[in-house]
Amino acid sequence: MSTTSPAVEHAPEPHRSGLGQRLNWLRAGVLGANDGIVSIAGLVVGVAAATSDRPAILAAGIAGLIAGAVSMALGEYVSVSTQRDTERALLAKERYELDHYPTAELKELTDLYVAKGASRATAHQLAVELTDHDAFAAHIDVELGIDPHDLTNPWHAAGSSAGSFAVGAALPILVVTFASQDLRVPITAATVIAALALTGWAGAALGGARRSPAVVRLVLGGSAAMVLTYILGQIIGGSPL
């Protein structure tokens, strides 16, 4: 009687093309929201400590939201544009080298596969076959790790950064504006701490990191910012100047 176990068919693993980039966008969104929450919470709490004038607090919060969102968008646009220009220059350089130094590029590709653990003979054979198929694609994949069809769009990055900042900033503005004067600061602080705990947990989960340290760091940092601006607002509000 045969004791051979029946063959078990394994379902193919799902392709994860683009998943890493989507996770990076999500993490960037969480970080932008955190920036909006902390910076604008500190701003409105400081102003609320200096004055009870609701329109003044609202005006300060909205001004901070607009300035912060524009700053975030501009910084992200410049950063991603620089990265994109660098990637395009590297792609152009690689295409030039393949056109003018094919032998040296074939040896370079072979050496790259050897460095990854392949034997010299196997690496050379693989380099030859991939070069015959699509030399440019083979080199940019192994040497540069760049997908020329999936370069980051600086406009998308700028919009995402500004949008997430604005969403995060809107929370403390709404709470401090509509809360009663006596409870304005404590309710805003409690709401902000809860929001930071949530976004800290989400950011750590997306990055596969431990949740507790991320939550503690954000809560402590946000709390420190609000305490400092509240003290400064109390000092300025009580000053005869």
Rank of each mutant, 00 (worst) to 15 (best):
S52G: 13
R54G: 05
L58N: 03
L58Q: 09
L58G: 03
A60T: 06
A60H: 04
G61F: 01
I62F: 06
I62T: 06
A63C: 11
G64C: 04
I66G: 00
A67L: 04
A67R: 01
G68R: 01
A69S: 13
A69C: 10
A69T: 03
A69F: 02
S71C: 04
S71T: 06
S71M: 00
M72H: 02
M72F: 01
A73E: 02
A73I: 03
L74Q: 10
G75I: 01
E76A: 14
V78K: 07
V78Q: 08
S79C: 11
S79Q: 09
S81V: 05
Q83Y: 08
R84M: 12
T86E: 07
E87F: 08
E87C: 10
R88W: 09
R88Y: 11
A89H: 11
A89V: 09
L90P: 01
L90H: 10
L90R: 11
L91C: 07
A92W: 10
A92R: 12
A92K: 13
K93D: 08
E94R: 03
E94M: 05
R95E: 06
R95A: 11
R95T: 06
E97K: 04
E97R: 09
E97Q: 13
L98P: 06
L98F: 10
D99S: 11
D99A: 10
Y101P: 09
Y101H: 14
P102L: 03
P102M: 07
P102S: 06
L106N: 12
L106G: 15
E108I: 11
E108C: 14
L109W: 06
L109H: 11
T110S: 15
V114I: 15
K116M: 10
K116F: 04
G117K: 05
G117T: 04
A118V: 14
S119I: 02
R120A: 15
A121M: 09
T122N: 13
T122D: 15
T122W: 10
A123F: 02
H124S: 08
H124A: 11
H124Y: 07
Q125D: 14
V128E: 14
V128Y: 11
V128P: 10
E129L: 14
L130Y: 08
T131W: 02
T131K: 08
H133E: 13
D134E: 05
D134L: 06
D134N: 14
A135W: 01
A135D: 03
F136R: 12
A138M: 09
A138P: 10
H139R: 12
I140G: 04
D141R: 14
E143I: 10
G145L: 02
D147W: 05
P148K: 07
H149N: 14
H149M: 12
H149D: 15
D150N: 15
L151S: 07
L151Q: 05
T152Y: 08
N153T: 04
W155Q: 08
H156S: 14
H156R: 13
A157M: 04
A157Y: 00
A157N: 03
A158T: 03
G159Y: 05
G159M: 06
S160C: 14
G163F: 00
G163K: 00
S164M: 12
S164R: 06
S164G: 11
F165P: 00
A169R: 00
A169S: 07
A169K: 01
A170K: 04
I173A: 00
V175H: 05
V175E: 08
V175P: 05
V176S: 09
T177R: 06
A179H: 01
